[in-house]
């Protein structure tokens, strides 16, 4: 059990680091997906530990939401690319104070 969770958390942290260091928006997105998948692994592992399927249902919902999120996210990336000719997250810094 512990090893599954440890793996899940390792993957999650690796995804988080990826989000922080990568600048290509698409790769950042992939890292987010990795983090989602890592949580799914934890859900499934917990489902087995507790002996019910609620964890699996949660993982299922996470997948659905991830699918929707990817759709929208990629559409945003495409439209940003279309107007700014770049996919670097550093170039979209209009929030700068």
């Amino acid at each position: 059990m512990t090893e599954y969770l440890t793996l899940s958390m390792l993957l999650f942290s690796i995804g988080a680091i990826g989000v922080l260091v990568r600048r290509n928006a698409i790769i950042v997105f992939m890292c987010v997906e990795l983090m989602l998948n890592a949580t799914n692994l934890a859900f499934v592992a917990f489902a087995r530990q507790h002996g019910n399927l609620d964890g699996q249902v949660a993982a299922f919902f996470v997948m659905v939401v991830a699918a929707a999120e990817v759709t929208i996210g990629l559409a945003i990336i495409v439209s940003i690319y279309r107007t700014r000719r770049t996919t670097s997250v550093d170039d979209a810094n209009l929030l700068k104070a």
Binding site: L7, L10, I14, G15, I17, G18, I27, C31
Partner: peptide, 10 residues
């Protein structure tokens, strides 16, 4: 394998 592949992402 998974950890190495995830590292590849970075």
């Amino acid at each position: 394998v998974m950890v190495l592949a995830a590292m590849g992402l970075i």
